[in-house]
């Protein structure tokens, strides 16, 4: 019985650590975008490297959690939902990393006067992720609070969509090369995708929470 409870505590700690890594990834993205917009390229590259390390650690941790859940046949009724949540949350971290990596590879020429709008976009996208992670934590410990976190995440996601549209309209009204406009649009879409993926996690979360209600 002691083994059962020790194993449980270890796994709980690992799940918490995994969710912490997603939060950390979001913060690094936020800081990375800020550094890019302020043309502090060295600091940007440091943030990107930290984010890649975080993603790698997240992948390892997730695989470990998944194999332990299967190996010890834990939470048989909710295992599918939990694995689905962890995998879709991992997708969010992957998109965060991939988006920041694109900044490093393509080094897009962002429009300085639109930078506050882009920062707002990135902030709201990461706010969506943070609300989603809070929802995931609540799923494990405080089921009644899941709905509140999902509502917050959906509100942030709506804001992301609105800002993205505003940014793209502004870009396409300008006298720029079409290729440049398209590049900027892609960066907005990639950042928007972070919130979209977080929203997908919320959809899974809402169903999983209903199933868990006693």
């Amino acid at each position: 019985m002691t083994v059962l409870f020790r194993r449980t505590r270890e796994l709980e700690a690992q799940i918490d650590e995994y969710l912490d890594l997603i939060i950390q990834g979001g913060m690094l993205f936020r800081q990375g975008v800020k550094c890019f917009l302020e043309h502090r390229s060295d600091e940007f590259e440091v943030r990107l490297q930290e984010l890649r390390n975080t993603e790698e650690r997240g992948d390892m941790l997730r695989r470990g959690i998944e194999s332990k859940l299967y190996l010890h046949t834990l939470i048989p009724e909710s295992r599918g939902d939990v694995l689905g949540l962890l995998e879709s949350a991992d997708e969010v971290l992957n998109v965060i990393t991939a988006t920041l990596l694109r900044f490093s590879i393509e080094n897009p020429e962002l429009q300085d006067d639109l930078n506050p709008l882009f920062r707002d976009l990135a902030d709201n996208a990461i706010d969506t992720v943070e609300a989603t992670v809070s929802g995931c934590r609540a799923y494990f410990r405080n089921l009644a609070a899941v709905r509140d976190h999902i509502s917050r995440a959906q509100a942030f996601r709506g804001e992301v969509n609105r800002i993205a549209e505003t940014y793209m309209r502004a870009v396409f009204r300008r006298e720029l090369r079409l290729s440049h406009k398209n590049q900027l649009r892609r960066f907005v879409t990639h950042t928007e995708q972070i919130a979209e993926d977080a929203d997908d996690v919320c959809d899974r979360l809402a169903i999983a929470a209903i199933k868990r209600y006693v």
Binding site: M1, L4, L11, I75, V214
Partner: peptide
């Protein structure tokens, strides 16, 4: 028993995995 369990689960904020372990025991 169902009402007692719901009341207790809402207040205890037990982790899903801990709940699983207690349920097994």
């Amino acid at each position: 028993l169902y009402r007692m369990a719901r009341w207790w689960l809402a207040r205890s904020r037990l982790h899903l995995l801990s709940l699983d372990a207690y349920t097994r025991v």
